[in-house]
Amino acid sequence: MKKNMMVTGLVLLAAASSLSCGKKDEKFESKVKLIRTYVNRKDEAGNPVVTDAEIQFTACPGDIRKVIRGGGTFAKCIADKKPGEELSINMVHALKRGGKYTARVVNVGGCERAPDPTDSRSYDSFRICKEVKTDGILVGFHCEVGSSEELVKACPWFGQ
């Protein structure tokens, strides 16, 4: 009896600790600028079936972009938007392949998107650039390309 209780206790403890270790999927909302859309596939009637959209996060420092691919209703809905348009975006902070976190886009400008976990096309591009000068002369550039502290402070959905 005592032994069973101990085992149950240990199992509960392990379950509780594993739950506390896992990060809950947080939800975020922001604004983006639509850079471009590209209809990747059309059906026989000429309606978009799969569309890529490149969006730029205007609230984040630097040039932070996301290329997202979506099918179904999203493909048609996003293809109707104009490049340069400012859209609202809803995201879920979730673990992606490779063990890193990403901001999964679930809605852009009213276009619902069901993220496909097998999608290997969508990606993020982080660039917070500054000029490099030597002896006061411009010689090149330096871009932070990771999920930097500055970026996560302004846009927490990019936190790892």
Binding site: V132, T134, V139, G140, F141, H142, C143, E144, V145, G146
Partner: peptide, 11 residues
């Protein structure tokens, strides 16, 4: 490795 930065310059 964690990717941090990309820098390019000419000389």
């Amino acid at each position: 490795w964690d990717l941090k930065y990309l820098e390019a310059r000419s000389l």
